[in-house]
Design a protein around this nucleic acid. Structure first.
Lengths: 126, 126
DNA sequence: ATAAACCCTTAAGTATACTCAAGAGTCAAG
DNA sequence: CTTGACTCTTGAGTATACTTAAGGGTTTAT
């Protein structure tokens, strides 16, 4: 398939696909004799993965590592994946704490008299 | 205290403090007669909060909302905080799924023969 | 009183991740 | 066979969040 179809099937714009190729997130596409890029189902899957990972806050550099573009060394990919899982664990813990803090903030806001200072700065920042 | 001390106590660079002021994340500092910015403990707390929120992936715009810089309307701050808590909830769920996916990936990588293709592209992207 | 350390402003530069524009070649339908 | 949709490349522009540079006052310690 050509780049337009790939774009429609993944929701990634044509320009962004070319950008990802330039950044080596996806391999250099094979070309038709006239120079058009040709893509396969594997490319669709790879792009969908990139989209997912991006939504989760991974940088392109991290995604590149995850995809292990430069190497087919499964063991290396494994250790990267495990390290990322660990990072996610920590991030989840942090986010959970932040969520609790926000809810506490909201509760305090609801209770204080309307002309009291907002309690946010008191309850946070330390 | 002056900007240098504020910087040291919060880990935020002097330039970044001035940038945050320019972006209205912190209020315009009062000045000495010679034009030096003067800060208080409240400013320290506010900056520490900004640092925490940033680590959790909030944008400066979102943090600005959280801090409710333009308004002392506690109820508005409350609703922003609750909305953010809800967003965090969803983000935590997504991150948890991603962590599971990564661990599954790692497990598969560990099992496949070393010359098999890496199973990542198969197990993801759909 | 003078040198080091600190502060000021304005403006430009950096990294990430796109996004758009210009100018030109290619392909499919009527 | 031509028109419109699609693709190509190169290069510049955008947004976010800083960071650095240039040039010049202020404070503090000796």
């Amino acid at each position: 398939m050509k780049i337009g179809e790939l774009s429609k099937r993944t929701g990634v714009s044509i320009d962004t696909v070319r950008y990802y190729e330039q950044q080596a997130l996806i391999p250099l596409a094979t070309r038709t004799q006239s120079g058009y890029r040709q893509y396969s189902e594997d490319d669709v899957a790879r792009l969908k993965f990139i989209v997912q990972a991006k939504e989760l806050g991974f940088t392109l550099r991290e995604i590149s590592q995850l995809l292990g573009i430069q190497s087919n060394d499964c063991q290396q990919v494994k250790s990267v994946a495990e390290a990322k899982a660990q990072e996610l664990e920590e991030r989840i813990a942090k986010l959970s704490r932040m969520r609790d803090v926000l809810l506490e903030m909201a509760a305090e806001c609801g209770q204080s008299a309307s002309d009291d200072p907002c309690p946010i700065l008191k309850s946070l920042g330390e």
